[in-house]
Write a protein that binds this DNA or RNA. Sequence first.
RNA 1: GGCGCGGUGGCGGAGUGGCUACGCAGCGGCCUGCAAAGCCGUGUACACCGGUUCAACUCCGGUCCGCGCCUCCA
Length: 449
Amino acid sequence: MPIQLFNTLKRIKEDFVPIDPERVRMYVCGPTVYDFAHIGNARPVVAFDILYRLLRETYGVDHVIYARNITDVDDKIIARAAESGEKIGDLTQRTELAFLDDMGSLGAMVPDIQPRATEHIAGMVTMIADLIKSGHAYVAEDHVLFNVSSYDDYGHLSGRNRDEMIAGARVEIAPYKQDPADFVLWKPSAEDQPGWDSPWGRGRPGWHIECSAMSEKHLGRTFDIHGGGQDLIFPHHENEVAQSTCAHGGETFVNYWLHNGYVMVEGEKMSKSLGNFYTVHDLLDEFPGEAIRLALLKTHYRKPLDFTKGGLQNAKMDLDKLYRALKETPAQSSAPSNKVMEALKDDLNTPLAMTYMFELAQGGGARDQLLASGKLLGILQHDPEDWFKGKASGDDGGLSDTDIDDLIEKRKQARVDKDFALSDSLRDELQNQGIILEDGAQGTTWRRS
RNA sequence: GGCGCGGUGGCGGAGUGGCUACGCAGCGGCCUGCAAAGCCGUGUACACCGGUUCAACUCCGGUCCGCGCCUCCA
């Protein structure tokens, strides 16, 4: 079966046919680096990580190029730095490192290219100049604005027409706009704001232009896949399409647009005012990154996801079950399960893929495919021993291994003496410390709960 | 108000016009000194109301509920 993907552009699932199978190219909107990534930021990272892995498996690891941008110039960054007094460069660098660190904990592979907006200003300026030259943009009061009415297909991606947009606008329209739907490509910077010299004075780019300039530079004028959160469809991606298409004389910008669904937390929508957003950084103190990853993958990427700590516990138990199977039957090197592959090829159906993972774990001869299939999903790559002892997630505080072994030894003697009261109290003591004992044929083993 | 997405058993969550996934929890059993883990068995759910059909959870229409976006806010 070919890979099928739901294309937002057409609102249908369709076969994925790359422009060049030797060079499959995808671009995903990355973070604005002013704060720790929350679970809503993590979802697209994990979802498109699955796609990246699937494409590499299908077309070969050297034939896929994955770019994810770092937005390091933005008004929120400016505002945050002003609040805290931290230098902008320090804030963005620190946040970017934290982001990579957190996403790494979630088992997300590092994209091939991670372009920073501030390192691509020249490309943006060139693109803006081209847009002005071709009549798709104009200068007004030190701003450069994109002229929406110059692009007939505006609104196609998000499925709206301009009348609707104007009717629904609830934001004050800047007086210098020729058309209320026009959006900013370049804006002036005050003395204390980051800015770059340009033909239109010292300023900084608008939000959307960076993705257009950076994708062009690294992936070309037309590429295969562009991904991001559903909330980016409008205006961000709509505007990207308009800019890039117009800057490229009408050439197609992207063939497949993919969008992941939104995230809720504990049954409520995530919002800063409710203070109910979980940062990945905080969650990692409580749960293994792999459990967070699985909690995200247990829901299909296009569906709404209610992220809960209960769900995380559950994901951890799922992993316990799979790791247990790996421990019992160490996997040989093998290809991923065909069923898991097929599930992923069907628009990244990770929940269905998990069903097959449990099937593989269910004894039988197919268990050796578990490890290779897990790799495709970005799970199960730790040593099972480390997983159960908490070493895979750095959660190995409290009792030391020797402490535990000593207590187990004591309990063993008690059991030989048939002093079950003592034996059970030792086990309870360990359990209170989060250590669960399992008496097997080969003696007693332990794991962290 | 406009556009879009979703509502499946106690929970999570796939899928299909007719043959009742899967995981967790629960219950019963085997095993165990007792547990834990494992194994076996067990649960006829698909928001509501109409319609189409021999047959709908699955198709169509409407209603209700939840959520996202509606331009400088990622």
